[in-house]
Amino acid sequence: MRKFALTAIAAAFAVTAFTGGVAKAAGGDQPAPAAQDWSWQGLFGTYDRAQLQRGFQVYKNICAGCHSLRFIAFRNLEGIGFNEDQIKAIAAEYDIEDGPNDDGDMFTRPGVASDYFPSPFPNEKAAAASNGGAIPPDLSLMNKARVGGPDYVFGLLTGYEEEAPEGFDLADGKYYNHYFPGHQISMAPPLYDEAVEYTDGTPMTLEQHARDITAFLNWTAQPELEARKALGMKVILFLLVLTAMMYAVKRKIWRDIEH
């Protein structure tokens, strides 16, 4: 009897692993980005607040020039360790369009905690016009919206090549990237050594910047990650105890039945 249960569980795992695996395995000729170590991986992994704040700095100083972050409000920054006053100060650095006022006019005012990050372009047409026809995608969900997730984002940011390989026909205004599908990407290499000034002594290398912004974007994509895993641990521990008890009761009830 136990054998059947085990077979069924094993089969269920096999089915999901197999189908999930093959569903992911679609892609072009670009290599799979190398797997990186991230602090939030594993059953107990959590975000590194200092890293998220450095990543936020990278977003604010570099990415935000072209990329929106429309699902993140300033108030959400509590999740990366800022307190209320810091959040108010950060929000106030931004000009937010509001209105219409009683005269029917739109006006700008300093941001408040409940505002969302303003988009760098008023609309998609403007975004495309300023970027050679390519629309810089919103970054809120980037780490969930690409095969490979954070490994892909990190790979892309560090995967630029100054010269395309010989024989590769690189179009005007495009850059060669190892991991971008088709290798031709419209985004110029955004990061370089000392692109952002860190104040906590962390080395200001391109790679470190890429690692930090990827961590920040993982938080924007899955802000619930820590709460989710913590609750998951409790739920599964509870279920293990409950199931063991059910099993014991089952054994007892069935004791006298030939089956």
């Binding site: 569980i9 269920a12 999901t16 739920v235 599964i236 279920l239 199931t243 059910m246 009761v249």
Partner: peptide, 16 residues
């Protein structure tokens, strides 16, 4: 009992 086993499997996906 089967539901307990199944819920552990289900939860592994939902939470992790």
């Amino acid at each position: 009992y089967g539901m307990g086993v199944f819920l552990i499997f289900f939860s592994a996906f939902v939470f992790f």
